[in-house]
Design a protein around this nucleic acid. Structure first.
Length: 426
RNA sequence: GGAGAGAUGGCCGAGCGGUUGAAGGCGCACGCUUGGAAAGCGUGUAUAGGGGUAACUCUAUCGAGGGUUCGAAUCCCUCUCUCUCCGCCA
């Protein structure tokens, strides 16, 4: 969300920036709305000022024992007018705020132009896709064959887009979580945090999921609790309505959480396997940065996420999203895409964004040093990484001709195994 | 789930329905004092929005939302959160 006075005085520049991402800002509508808002506000406030004066006078008159019945009738009438004006002003203000809350962030100058994913720009490519002397399988075949992945029972106990992991399949997921957390906390300087997996709607507003994207979320009945779609929501909101010490920034946090997404409107996309599930797990990286350092921090955060793939020996590429492909709150985003033999292509495994002050303004996250005035921090986040998709990448990239999967060296202590072999309960 | 207590400025803590945006203290900032420091003294010290080139001024805010009243931090109702006890529970 934008700062009110900044938005007002830079409407045309903002509209031009938003046009890059294909968002048409109706500047006339906003100007009108803003004028109406200010008129209503001024009217209500000046009437309030005279009521306050009249009321003070009644007070002092009554102290002198003078009858004030006439004044009281007059002020009572003013009160009714004020109520009406207030309602009007409030309605217009609300209309203005709602409209403003639905305006996406402006892309940073370094964001490539373009309309959709085809215009994204590859910034680096690391590793080479493995060559197989046999026909490699997709994980949705290989997993069930190994007995470590079970879609049928998941559909029975819950429904579509859920999975059950068995044996070393379950343990591989857990190994990846621990590995990622250990690297980020031990090597990259992140502080681990374990937040609630449900949040209230104020938090979702803070990070920008609400009001526009309620349909993508799961909401619990008869409460204001929502299942988190990403750890970004609880972790960024940790410091909502707080003022941080500018000198101590950046804060670098990492959190493991499950994530829940309704995937409304994605019918038919990634229907096979565990690429797109209603429930998946993620290790998330979140940074609170000084405004003058946030782009440097975005590079660092992206490198930290990439490092997991390097250590796992998985081939990937990093792309800079074009203006038209970026998320609502983001000013700049890098997607990291891992190579998946089952798709014979790259698939997003992390999305690293700088939101600048967009979320901080919505969530009231400020920082100041000494006596300086508090300013909004810049927030960043990225997956480090999506665990389910990393699981897929391991299984598919390290599969062998005999149907087993060799586990990368760094994971073996966590898995207590060198290889995934056929598993069966019986 | 049941019973009770509470929520006031950066913090602690007053507050009779009327000039209380809010006493007092602490903290913080600046100044005086000092060889320097402490103590002492003085001054200042919230946020958001509107108007104004500015000085400044107006409005709102005492957990949130309603209500009573000419007027509410103060009275009434609802909700949220925190704490204590009981029950249940990992």
């Amino acid at each position: 969300m934008y700062d009110l006075s900044f938005f007002r005085s830079n409407l045309d520049e903002i509209a031009a920036g938003l046009a890059r991402r294909g968002f048409q800002l109706d500047t006339d509508e906003f100007r009108q709305l803003d004028n109406r808002r200010r008129t209503a506000l001024t009217q209500a406030e000046s009437l309030k000022a005279s009521r306050n004066a009249a009321t003070a006078e009644i007070g002092s008159l009554r102290k002198q024992g003078i009858d004030t019945a006439a004044q009281q009738v007059r002020v009572r009438e003013m009160g009714e007018q004020i109520t009406a004006l207030d309602e009007q002003a409030k309605a217009i203000d609300e209309e203005f705020r709602q409209a403003l809350a639905r305006v996406p962030n402006t892309p940073h100058a370094s964001v490539p132009a373009g309309r959709d994913e085809r215009d994204n720009v590859e910034v680096r490519r690391v590793g080479t896709s493995p060559s197989f002397d046999f026909q490699p399988k997709a994980h949705w075949d290989l997993g069930p064959e190994l007995g470590i992945l079970d879609f049928d029972r998941a559909a029975k106990i819950t429904g579509a887009r859920f999975a059950v992991y068995w044996g070393l399949g379950a343990r591989l997921e857990r190994a990846l979580i621990n590995f990622m957390l250990d690297v980020h906390t031990g090597q990259h300087g992140y502080t681990e945090v374990l937040p609630p997996f449900m949040v209230n709607s104020t938090s979702l507003f803070g990070t920008g999921q609400l009001p526009k994207f309620a349909a993508d979320l799961f909401k619990l009945e008869s409460s204001d609790y929502w299942l988190i779609p990403t750890a970004e929501v609880p972790v960024t909101n940790l410091f909502r309505d707080e003022t941080l010490d500018l000198e101590r920034l950046p804060y670098s946090l990492c959190a493991f959480t499950p994530c829940f997404r309704s995937e409304a409107g994605s019918y038919g996309r990634d229907v096979r396997g565990i690429i797109r599930q209603h429930q998946f797990q993620k290790v998330e990286l979140v940074k609170f940065a000084r405004p003058d350092q946030s782009y440097q921090q975005l590079e660092q955060l992206t490198a930290d996420a990439e490092d997991i793939l390097r250590r796992l020996g998985l081939p990937f590429r990093t792309v800079a999203l074009c203006a038209g492909d970026m998320g609502f709150s983001s000013a700049k985003t890098y997607d990291i895409e891992v190579w998946l033999p089952g798709l014979n292509g790259y698939k997003e495994i992390s999305s690293c964004s700088n939101f600048e002050a967009f979320q901080a303004r919505r969530a009231g996250i400020r920082a100041k040093s000494g006596k300086s005035k508090a300013e909004f921090v810049h927030t960043l986040n990225g997956s480090g990484l999506a665990v389910g998709r990393t699981w897929v990448a391991i299984v598919e990239n390290y599969q062998q001709k005999d149907g087993t999967v060799v586990i990368p060296e760094v994971l073996r202590p966590y898995l207590n195994a060198e290889r995934l072999t056929r598993f069966s309960l019986a």
